[in-house]
Amino acid sequence: MIPASFAYERAQSVREAVELLESHQGEAKVLSGGHSLIPLLKLRLTSPTVLVDIGGIAELKGISAEGDRLVVGALTTHAEVAASPEVRRHLPLLAEAARQVGDLQVRNRGTVGGNIAHADPASDLPAVALALDAVITVEGPAGRSEVPVEDFILGPLLTALGGSDVVVSVAFPIPKGKWKGAYEKYPHPASGYAVAGVAAVIGVDDGGTIRDARVGITGVGDMPYRARDVEAALVGNPATEEVVRRAAERADAEGSFSGDLFASEDYRRHLSKVYTRRALMRSLP
């Protein structure tokens, strides 16, 4: 598997990366961990003339708690997220999802920024990002901006990133009060991508009533989505298994479902409900 030839540039800073992308006017692609891009290059499904390697930019690495959110640098690998004490303490469901990304090699090389920028419709991370209302920091020719994940992922392999934009970090707000979350995944036996993946968060008040519920679903169709019907069926109700069971039945009310060789649209609709229920059950505080 040999890609078409391309030029290689190594950026030393985010600013330089943006400038390089700008100077190549849509002909360049950002290379981070390479675990999504390089297979595409080898299959010759994409043939950019230039790769801008951001792998050496120190400011894009690391995880830090900033106020009530965890900020994960774009170059942080899935393995680092999964192993991070900060993530495990504050957002265990993020660690849980990171642990299930691809295989060991992918987790060791693949990055959070690359993952979110690639926007694979069966990727794990977007489900968690949706459930936590993550915000993506993007740097482009006009400077930095923050984009909520729901405005960032626009379709299959399609994001709000401009041709000269670079993902700087993904900030995951830490839910307040008493809450629990979980990520439940049905991995494709060949690719390891989610046939269905559901990230759930349930927050309760002191009386045991659900005051906050968030459900992000990936893998079942063209793009990950927030299951707001499920959330609405939870909020205001007691945090019981019966409530969860009924709410999970609404998992396919939104989202665009599609089928493939392994799992039909019907089956994926079914899975969305089952995995929503399973994730929510584990999220009952």
Partner: peptide, 13 residues
């Protein structure tokens, strides 16, 4: 061949 890669052809793990 629809199952022409390891993305679609499931080898046992």
């Amino acid at each position: 061949l629809v199952t022409g890669s390891f993305m679609d052809y499931a080898m046992p793990k």
